[in-house]
């Protein structure tokens, strides 16, 4: 039987640990600082800061989110279980009256809470700065971008947890997380571009391959929140707008939700079957 009180206890501990983690603090400060910097531009003719509108700030933040959020989501997720397994803390925790579902979900919820708190702080600082300058138009689009960033953070955290269940050591888990980050951020795009050119793929195929990447889903959905169509993305964007119309944004949201749920279920399935691998020390 699953006890939500146990999930909550473990989640609170994870949240507390994350907020004490110096790398996490550095990330939070860096993200908040960059978000604030992006929301403010030096006025060309003077010393005053001229604040941009919410939609322009959201557009600037999309690229920041695409780089930072997957990196922290993947690394935090991948290091979590792997390091606990390596120190033996996981084996000790599993010897208590808890089940594996509660442990994994508790850890996930705690890390997710920390990650979302960071994003809230970053977006919040930028949002408050804009509001203080009176630039409150397009606030709805800005908030939707924040929600999308949350979904991307949770998706990459799920992928990190999945890596953490299969990696033998923390270093391997972190290495895998960094490779996946590189793949999702850079190599994936370059690969699609190269394949498109070399194989002369039809535009719909390019679009569907692109949206297999959760980062692309986030990017497309975010652009849709600040402008009505994807023409800015060229033929693939125009194809998507023509083909799906108003359904595109809900479909992308569902796609991001699938990226959250499926890797997490995969991690749960693997974790619930692991024995010797999870329990540190001599097996006999």
């Amino acid at each position: 039987m699953i006890e939500f009180a146990n999930i909550r206890t473990i989640a609170e501990k994870e949240l507390r640990d994350a907020l004490r983690n110096r790398w996490f603090i550095v990330f939070t400060i860096a993200f908040a600082g960059l978000a604030l910097a992006l929301s403010a531009l030096i006025h060309p003719g003077g010393t005053q800061l001229r604040m941009m509108s919410y939609s322009r700030t959201a557009a600037s933040l999309i690229n920041l989110v695409l780089l930072f959020v997957p990196l922290i989501g993947l690394t935090l997720g991948s290091a979590n279980l792997a390091s606990d397994r390596e120190t033996g803390a996981l084996a000790y925790l599993l010897a208590q009256p808890v089940n594996r579902f509660e442990v994994l979900l508790g850890k996930y919820v705690g890390m997710a809470g920390a990650l979302l708190a960071t994003l809230t702080l970053g977006f919040g600082v930028a949002g408050v700065a804009l509001a203080l300058q009176g630039s409150i138009q397009d606030a709805g689009g800005y908030l939707l971008t924040v929600v999308l960033a949350y979904l991307l953070a949770l998706a990459t955290l799920s992928l990190g947890f999945l890596m953490s269940t299969v990696a033998q050591k923390t270093t391997a888990a972190l290495g895998g997380a960094l490779f996946l980050w590189l793949f999702l951020v850079f190599i994936g795009d370059l690969g699609i571009m190269g394949t498109t050119v070399s194989m002369r793929m039809p535009i719909e195929a390019v679009f569907f391959i692109a949206v297999l990447n959760p980062l692309q889903m986030f990017k497309l959905a975010s652009i849709l929140t600040i402008q009505a169509n994807l023409e800015v993305l060229g033929p693939a964007g125009m194809y998507a707008t023509d083909q799906f119309g108003g359904l595109l944004l809900p479909l992308l949201l569902i796609g991001l939700l699938i990226w959250i749920v499926v890797p997490l279920l995969g991690a749960l399935a693997l974790f619930s079957r692991q024995e010797k691998f999870v329990l540190k020390g001599s097996a006999r």
């Binding site: 009180a5 146990n6 206890t9 473990i10 501990k13 640990d17 004490r20 120190t87 033996g88 803390a89 084996a91 000790y92 010897a95 208590q96 009256p97 808890v98 540190k280 020390g281």
Partner: peptide, 26 residues
């Protein structure tokens, strides 16, 4: 009640550690 050869605890104080496991044990 389980005592391993070398218990691996999380980075907490003694009191925090006991409160954490006390909550799990209700």
């Amino acid at each position: 009640g389980y005592v391993p050869q070398e218990a691996a605890f999380y980075d907490m104080t003694v009191l925090e550690t006991l409160h954490f496991y006390a909550r799990l044990k209700k």
